[in-house]
Design a protein around this nucleic acid. Structure first.
Length: 951
RNA sequence: GCCAAAGUGGUGGAAUUGGUAGACACGCUGGAUUCAAAAUCCAGUGCAUUCACGUGCGUGAGGGUUCGAGUCCCUCCUUUGGUACCA
């Protein structure tokens, strides 16, 4: 009898839940270890085989840590607010809470099927009022604090108000967006609303006018990824920018700390680099250029003040405020046309145009601050309005884009850096010696930067400046299905609600469409909106609100007195291991770090960084299969052809129709094709093609009839395959339940790990799952033969002990390195060895079960109980290896001649270098390689190899 | 354009600090078992050449460092992911 996975899995799933095997306690004396999974959004499509990749890895790791003596927190929950549920509600009228609950149930069942060791008592659901009560509370804290730059921390807004009463804006170093100044007397004289407006420029959560993607035709605001090329993705309607009063978070206040914090994190360098680039700190100088014959000055930010004498023109962003003022009469039409064209371009189009240089001369000139020469002012869309000051001083000799621009418009390219000492340096590298640069001549670039800035400062031309790319985060959505703001507005002022009124629950609703002005559907609920204190805010919070702090809630998920108790926060502190995808590189991971730092500042948590170690799992992609459909019908019928035929006729005459992968034979392979059965299924699925013609090399299939060429029996219509996202729209979603049912959860888990390194992306492919399935059966067959328990008490042989301990050593090492795929290989080697030696000894097999437990939790649990053990194998100790079993009697040395392996030599372990060299030199088989040549040198690397260097 | 990662058999992938390239698995070939098949077990399997022993060549391409390079350095090509032409 083979291993019966269905029965065993059912048995132990029940056992685990009845015995609360995975319950985690906060009052343990063991060291803590916190393993966190990515927060899933429960979509209607259910879990696909790509999702569990990271979950399986973290599950294995947390089981390994628990068996190694740690108190392991490994929770799961759901990021349940989101756009798809709301979209579904608009289409079907089903309340998002209902569809979400339905999806949650399905996700939970799918997760349980795979055998994850979550403590479900700690489940967090963001759309649950008992959770979002605390999301709202944190928002109120952000609203009630400002950032003090001197102390580098958030402080209560009341302290700021007290300071304004006493001193006005003087002596304050706060992060703010205010553009005016005021005295204490002026502050005292301001109206309540004026005071409120000023404070909005300081609060860490604040209201401001921001632009949204407004689509008139759909009557709704669209997310960025719903807009393609300036048109809505659905329907292709025009999208315009519309100003709206919205909430934002002042994450920019934390830019420097978010940057510094990266240093201590055990994240991949590429991930840190992405975050650094997003924060985008650059040190340089602000420099002012006077405009010839005008009052106004052009302010630029440059990282290369040393190149000031290389400036031969200036460029303003087309949207720059000065453009209208300084453009000369004769250039007005040309400039207006350019500005107009640039405004219509989408970001995508600007990107595609990266290589083509465009621009327009304004007719105006700036005055060089040192040489006093006139330099022309251009506009071009390679300068962006939102970055820096929206204007640059162009240095064509040491900036690739400026150079291209200068060449196109025939502008001088003054050479001001001698890079002859650095032949490998390319344009823009900060190396070389300054020339033709007045007071900077002879200085190295680095020194010249300092010298230039200090001279600029002395002459009032500019000053040192640190610039960040990071911008404040928009925190509003004009939607229903999100956290309501605990805010009421009255007389143009926003007030936070008192704690006693939290949570502000989402009111019931049956029409989920936005209002005509694009406001959230909540705006229609007059009764809900109007309170004695004012009107409720009708925007809701964005998706990242709930996911920016959920990892703290798991520590004490049911607390109603605080977002988590001090004790729990103090015990668990931070996440020791977070496994998640790179798509969150700058969004979720940046916001979570920001919220954690803020909670630290207000004394609520004891850590500044939430995620100590981060592993980026790769994506499991899907295979997308397409049929070629001729653009031109033949005799009024649709015409599908084989990929080979399409290529012959030219693929431009065809469109590609995604087809369900279940209809395709050998999908994902070069030979992927559909036969007559497949065509029937396809036509059934898409009745509009019921009388279509399907042409392939073998013949033509039409209306259920096959007209073969030669003697072909079946259609062989080759499809075109592509690797891409696993998604409902490509009909290529593979449900893990199907694999689990066929092969068992243990096999599914180990196969996903066996596919390759966890960080690597790869298409889903079941080729090779048989190998893992065979391994599971073979492992089982060491214990059971035809249902008979065949384990005995025989003393373990030396060879078996060596195999076992070698495996323990390798698996332990690879687990520490998160190399799960090689762990699976090591297990296979062990089983192959034990099968060969016909080992059934308890002394080998019992530790082997404990070793395999994290990977195959169901089968090992069954085997563990077969040994007569009472508790769960998952609470047993992870085996430790004993080096004494691993000592080799002999070492095999490859003998190389000039680095090429020629002969092998067995040497007793512990032989001295000299003896090895002597034995090697005397090897008869080696003589033909060294005969007639001079042995220059013999290199002996202990336990590795011997190399003869000959001439 | 910029940033990051990666290119190894027919396929997925192994390979400490530079030290026997291809572990493990799929697939394929042959054999055992079987009336037959499935399943299982055994053997072989980088490419070229050779009856064979063997020999040569081999980690995207080209160069370099080294006794020795998949691994380090330079140039280039390709693929994937990110992106805000970031001054």
């Amino acid at each position: 009898m083979d291993y019966n996975h269905s029965a065993v899995e059912k048995k132990w799933k029940n056992f685990w839940s009845e015995n609360q095997t995975y319950k985690v306690h906060n009052d343990s004396h063991k060291p803590k270890f916190y393993v966190l999974d990515m927060f899933p959004y429960p979509s209607g499509a259910g879990l696909h085989v790509g999702h569990p990749l990271g979950y399986i890895a973290s599950d294995i790791y947390s089981r390994f840590k628990r068996q190694s003596g740690f108190n392991v927190l490994h929770p799961m929950g759901f990021d349940a607010f989101g756009l798809p549920a709301e979209q579904y509600a608009i289409q079907t009228g089903v309340h998002p809470a209902d569809s979400t609950a339905e999806n949650l149930k399905r996700y939970r069942a799918q997760l349980d099927n795979i055998g994850f060791n979550y403590d479900w008592d700690r489940q967090v659901i963001t759309s649950d009022p008992s959770y979002y009560k605390w999301t709202q509370w944190i928002f109120l804290q952000l609203f009630g604090h400002y950032y003090d730059k001197k102390e580098a921390k958030a402080k209560p807004i009341e302290e700021l108000i007290a300071h304004f009463e006493q001193n006005g804006l003087a002596d304050i170093q706060a992060h703010h967006s205010l553009e005016t100044v005021f005295t204490a007397a002026e502050w005292q004289a301001y109206s309540a609303q004026e005071k409120d407006d000023i404070l909005m420029n300081f609060r860490l959560a604040y209201r401001k006018v921001a632009y949204v993607n407004w689509c008139e035709a759909l009557g709704t605001v669209l997310a960025n990824d719903e807009v393609k090329d300036g048109l809505s993705e659905r329907g292709g309607h025009p999208v315009e920018k519309k100003p709206m009063m919205q909430w934002a978070l002042r994450i920019t206040a934390y830019a420097e700390r978010l940057l510094e914090g990266l240093l201590k994190l055990d994240w991949s360098e590429s991930m840190k680099t992405m975050q650094r680039n997003w924060i985008g700190k650059s040190t340089g100088a602000t420099v002012f250029f006077n405009v010839f014959d005008h009052e106004s000055k052009i302010e630029v930010f440059t990282t290369r003040p040393d190149t000031i004498f290389g400036v031969s023109f200036m460029v303003l962003a087309p949207e720059h405020d000065l453009v209208q003022q300084i453009t000369t009469e004769d250039k007005r039409d040309e400039v207006a046309a350019y500005v107009d064209a640039a405004g219509k371009k989408s970001d995508v189009e600007r990107m595609a145009d990266a290589k083509t240089v465009s621009g327009c001369f304004t007719g105006a000139y700036a005055i060089h601050p040192f040489s006093k020469e006139n330099i022309p002012i251009y506009i071009s869309d390679y300068v962006l309005k939102d970055y820096g000051t929206g204007a640059i001083m162009a240095v064509p000799c040491d900036d690739a884009r400026d150079k291209r621009f200068a060449e196109k418009f025939d502008i001088d390219i003054p050479i001001i850096i001698d890079k002859s000492a650095f032949p490998n340096a390319s344009i823009g590298d900060k190396v070389g010696t300054m020339i033709h640069s007045d007071f900077l001549n002879g200085l190295k670039v680095k020194d010249a930067i300092k010298a230039a800035v200090s001279k600029m400062y002395d002459e009032g031309i500019g000053y040192r400046k640190v610039n960040y790319k990071l911008r404040d985060a928009n925190f509003s959505r004009q939607r229903y299905w999100g956290e309501p703001f605990p805010i009421v507005n009255k007389d143009g002022q926003s007030k936070g609600l008192p704690f006693a009124e939290l949570p502000v629950e989402l009111p019931p609703l049956d029409d989920f469409k936005p209002t005509a002005e694009g406001k959230s559907p909540l705006a229609r609920l007059d009764k809900w909106i109007n309170t004695v204190d004012g009107e409720r805010e009708t925007d809701t919070m964005p998706g990242y609100a709930g996911s920016s702090w959920y990892f703290f809630r798991y520590m004490d998920a049911k607390n109603d007195e605080a977002f988590a108790s001090e004790d729990a926060l103090d015990y668990w502190k931070d996440v020791d291991l977070y496994i998640g995808g790179t798509e969150h590189a700058v969004g979720h991971l940046m916001y979570s770090r920001f919220w954690t730092k803020f909670l630290y500042d207000i004394g609520k948590v004891s850590v500044q960084e939430p995620f100590k170690k981060l592993i980026n799992q790769g994506m499991i992609q899907g295979v997308i299969e397409f049929l070629y459909l001729a653009k031109e019908k033949i005799e009024g019928r649709s015409r599908f052809v084989c990929a080979n035929i399409a290529e012959g006729e030219g693929v431009e005459h065809f469109s590609r129709i995604p087809i369900h992968i279940d209809f395709v034979e050998n999908y994902g392979n070069k030979d992927s094709h559909i036969n007559m059965n497949g065509i029937d299924s396809f036509v059934n699925w898409r009745p509009e093609y019921s009388d279509a013609r399907f042409e392939c090399g073998n013949g033509v299939y039409q209306n259920g009839h096959f007209e073969p060429k030669d003697s072909a029996l079946d259609s062989h219509l080759v499809t075109s395959s592509e690797v891409g996202k696993m998604s409902k729209r490509y009909f290529n979603v593979v449900n893990p339940d199907v694999i689990v049912e066929k092969y068992g959860a243990d096999c599914f888990r180990m196969y996903e790990m066996f596919l390759g390194p966890i960080e690597q992306s790869k298409p889903w492919d079941t080729q090779g799952i048989e190998g893992v399935s065979k391994f599971i059966k073979r492992f089982w067959s060491l214990f059971y033969d035809n249902g008979q328990w065949i384990v005995n008490e025989t003393e373990a042989s030396k060879g078996d002990l060596k195999s076992l301990h070698q495996t323990i050593k390798k698996v332990t090492k690879d687990l520490h390195a998160f190399s799960f795929n090689t762990c699976v290989s090591h297990f296979m080697v062990l089983v192959n060895d034990l099968k060969k030696s016909q080992c059934h000894s308890k002394h080998i097999l019992e530790p082997a079960v404990r070793l395999l437990a994290p990977f195959a939790p169901f089968m090992t649990e069954e085997l563990w109980s077969s040994f007569g053990n009472e508790g769960s194998v998952h609470h047993s100790a992870f085996p430790e290896f004993d080096e004494t079993y691993l000592v080799e009697d002999t070492v095999t040395y490859p003998l190389c001649v000039n680095g090429k392996k020629r002969v092998l030599l067995d040497v007793p372990n512990g032989t001295s270098k000299e003896a090895i060299e002597k034995m090697a030199t005397e090897m008869p088989e080696l003589q033909k390689w060294i005969e007639g040549k001079t042995v220059v040198k013999v290199i002996v690397v202990p336990n590795k190899m011997v190399n003869f260097v000959v001439k």
